[in-house]
Design a protein around this nucleic acid. Structure first.
Lengths: 115, 115
DNA sequence: CTTGACCCTGACATTAATGTCAGGGTTTAT
DNA sequence: ATAAACCCTGACATTAATGTCAGGGTCAAG
């Protein structure tokens, strides 16, 4: 299929599909006219990429394990676990930071409304 | 005092102090040689700016109420409360989003470690 | 009078994925 | 054969505060 169809099937913009290819997350073969041609498997692959992006995993990290998880179950890809754990730590840190700010804001709102 | 001293006293970089001035958070008078001259009050003012920035308030929002809070108590500045509440909502949303991602990551880590 | 420590402005870089535009080919249907 | 709907590459923009550099004045101490 061509890029427009892949975009329509996945809901991912053409711009992003080209970007994923540049980041080596997605491959295509070129037709004689230069158009990208995708296999039907590309659709599932794009959904997988979107799934990891939604977890906050960067394209660079995804590239490091995508080939493996597309062939095996996630659990067989040793690259995945450390990345998940690192991401989890980043998110935990971020949540703590936001909770601190939240408490601070709530205090100030309360003190304004009382004063 | 000159900008280097204000920077040393507050721990805020010279670059940032100039930026605050450009964003109309901070004022200075120019000496004949073009150097910025700050009053002693600037030190407290810079600390106040840093405090709001640490709450995630943007310079543009700070500019909208800084003059008021420097003269009055925060509670007298009606501009402050809606900004606090808006920021609180943004932070709440962000925390929820991060908690969702966190649960998702934890699930996947667990399933890898079990599998 | 020279050196080092200040100060100035203006500009570019930073992050990461995506939007958007320009300029230009290709295909398909009429 | 022409118009509409595709496709291509390359480039700039987006956010917000800060870092950093270039090129150039100013001041103070020796």
């Amino acid at each position: 299929m061509k890029i427009g169809e892949l975009s329509a099937r996945t809901g991912v913009s053409i711009r992003s599909l080209r970007y994923y290819e540049q980041q080596k997350l997605l491959t295509s073969v070129r037709q004689e006219n230069g158009y990208r041609e995708y296999t039907p498997l590309a659709e599932e692959q794009v959904r997988t990429i979107q799934f990891y992006l939604a977890l906050g995993i960067t394209t660079e990290q995804i590239a490091s394990f995508l080939n493996c998880v597309l062939k095996n179950k996630e659990a067989f890809c040793e690259e995945v676990l450390p990345i998940y754990k690192q991401k989890l730590k980043e998110i935990d840190d971020q949540i703590h930071l936001l909770n601190n700010i939240k408490s601070n804001l709530e205090d100030r709102i309360r003190s304004i409304q009382e004063g």
